[in-house]
């Protein structure tokens, strides 16, 4: 609500309850910008659900094939991007063979950028150390078809190289040839990976989802349908914490840790605004207002 000349004569509680919302946007923006200017590093505690993904990948032997489904798009890049980068760095660090694909129509170019940039950090060769399959529409059907053979939906990779001509894919046909699937995204595609890949073909599955999607998947974690869960920017920061030495060695900013440091300040502001708003509401109620 706008601040009118009349509102400036109102009691404090009324003025707080009728504050122009643009001031709140401004406070939030300042709380999100100012901490970037200072090197504040707060501890990120690693939760068991993130640790189990890290441990699973860490225990795999070099050369083990793994599927990374980067099913996210620009809308959720801020959360899923750091998750994907951390996971792929861990896989390449351990010399795993990675099949990267996407079932998000807006994510094809982003997943390609992810595969080329991270593989360059580790001097990985396309076709030998990793494969990028690209995007295919109708995610439910694609996930089911991979259970039979990758070649049904993906006769060729993103660069039009037939899968049969790619050395890495020689002995990889379906989920039974993979150590696990790690899906990054959220929403309907994650549901489809749970039903069509894990339940249908019993492939071990871990998910890295947006914070909005996180709570609904804790039930599947408790039921053992997924072996790990990386939730939102917090989950990505936890994974980066586990790979902190690797990030230092590469000289790369741990973006999720940096983001979570800022997030703490914004959360404090939101808590303060909630408390002030409620206090003003109760003061007004005691004064007989509505």
């Amino acid at each position: 609500m706008m601040n009118t000349p009349e509102s400036t004569h109102l009691p404090l509680a009324d003025r707080l309850l009728t504050i122009d919302r643009r001031f709140i946007y401004l406070f939030v923006m300042l709380a999100a910008v100012i901490p970037f200017m200072f090197k504040v590093e707060l501890d990120v505690e690693v939760t068991p659900e993130v640790m189990s993904v890290y441990s699973f990948i860490d225990k795999l032997k070099p050369g083990t094939p793994i599927l990374l489904a980067a099913d996210y798009d620009p809308q959720t890049q801020a959360e899923n991007g750091p998750q994907a980068e951390a996971l792929l760095r861990h896989m390449f660090k351990n010399n795993l063979r990675v099949i990267i694909m996407t079932l998000s129509q807006d994510g094809a170019a982003m997943a390609e950028m992810l595969s080329t940039s991270i593989s360059a950090e580790y001097n990985k060769i396309r076709g030998e150390d990793y494969v990028y399959l690209g995007y295919k529409p109708y995610f439910g059907i694609i996930i089911l078809s991979i259970g039979q053979n990758f070649r049904i939906s993906y006769p060729a990779d993103f660069y039009d190289t037939p899968l049969d001509e790619i050395p890495m894919m020689k002995n990889i046909h379906n989920y039974s040839d993979l150590a696990c699937v790690i899906q990054i995204g959220g929403g309907n595609v994650t549901h489809a990976w749970l039903t069509n890949a894990h339940e249908r073909y019993k492939v071990p599955l871990a998910i890295a989802v947006t914070a909005v999607s996180g709570p609904q998947y804790y039930a599947t974690l408790q039921s053992g349908q997924i072996f790990g869960l990386i939730g939102g920017l917090k989950g990505a920061a936890e994974y980066e914490t586990l790979l902190r030495d690797e990030y230092r060695r590469l000289g790369i900013i741990a973006r999720a840790i940096q983001g979570m440091n800022v997030q703490n300040f914004v959360h404090i502001l939101i808590i303060l605004l909630t408390l002030v708003g409620n206090a003003a509401f109760f003061v007004k109620k005691r004064q007989g207002g509505r």
Partner: peptide, 28 residues
């Protein structure tokens, strides 16, 4: 769920500010 939603929305804002300050302006 609401707590997670707040965190998610703030994360998106932080992502954009990171892009502006770190990637574009190189201030941080």
């Amino acid at each position: 769920s609401f707590g997670y939603t707040v965190m998610a929305r703030v994360s998106l804002l932080i992502g954009r500010i990171q892009f502006l300050l770190v990637d574009w302006l190189h201030w941080v």
